[in-house]
Amino acid sequence: MSDPAGETMAAFWVRARCHDPALPSCPPPAWSFGAGPDEADALLALVLQDRKTATASALADYENAGERPPRPGELSVVLDGDGMPRAVIEVTAVDVVPFSEVSAEHAWAEGEGDRSLGHWRDEHRAFWTEHGATGFAPEMPVVCERFRLRFSG
C-alpha cells in the first residue's frame, strides 16, 4: 500500500528541485511553525508573503528533544496546518541570546503582529509558558534564527 504523505512530500520535492536544481536529492527535515494547525497556517502565510524571515525557539526545547539548534545553510520543509509541505527555507544566521536580549530587529523579521519588540515578547512569553519544555524564564536562552525562502509550492 502506498503512503499518501510520502507521495505528497516526494511530489513537492520534485517540484522544488525543478525550481531550484541546487537543492539536494533528498528532502530535508519537515516541520511546522507554532503549536497547532491554525498557528502553523498563519505563520506559514507570513513566510509565503516574505514578511516572516526569522523565528525563535527555546534552546531548552532542542536540548530536551536531544536535538541541536539549526545551523546556517541547513534546509527545512515547512508544513501547513494539515501537515502538507508548502515551502523550503534555508537558515542564513543563528544567534543564541537571553530572552531579554532579543533585538527589535529580530522581532521585526519574525513578521508577527505589529512587528514590535513588545508584541514579540508578549507572544513568546505566553507561548513558552504554555508550550515550552521548561516553561518561561526572563533570561532563558533563545535560538534566534534567520532564514530565506528557497521555494514555495
Rank of each mutant, 00 (worst) to 15 (best):
A16P: 12
G153A: 13
G66Y: 13
R51K: 15
R146V: 01
F127R: 07
A40Q: 09
W128P: 03
F147P: 04
G113K: 14
A137W: 00
H124L: 10
P98C: 07
A42Y: 04
E74T: 04
L48C: 13
V14S: 07
S152W: 00
R68N: 12
P141K: 06
V77G: 03
R86M: 06
A93W: 01
V88D: 06
T129H: 09
F12Y: 09
P85N: 10
L48T: 03
S25C: 05
F33G: 10
C18Q: 15
V97G: 01
A22Y: 03
E139L: 06
G81W: 08
A87S: 11
L59M: 13
V91D: 02
L149T: 14
V88A: 09
W128Q: 05
R15K: 15
F99L: 04
S103D: 00
E7M: 11
G83L: 08
W128A: 06
G111M: 08
E110M: 09
P24V: 09
V142N: 02
G118I: 00
S2E: 12
S2R: 12
T134L: 12
A45N: 06
P28L: 05
H106L: 05
F33K: 11
E105T: 08
Q49W: 02
M9T: 08
E105G: 09
S103Y: 01
P28V: 04
P4L: 01
D82G: 15
D50T: 08
E67R: 13
E67Y: 09
E39T: 14
V47Y: 07
R17N: 12
A58P: 06
S103P: 00
I89P: 10
W108V: 05
E139I: 00
P72D: 06
N64L: 15
R68Q: 15
S152L: 01
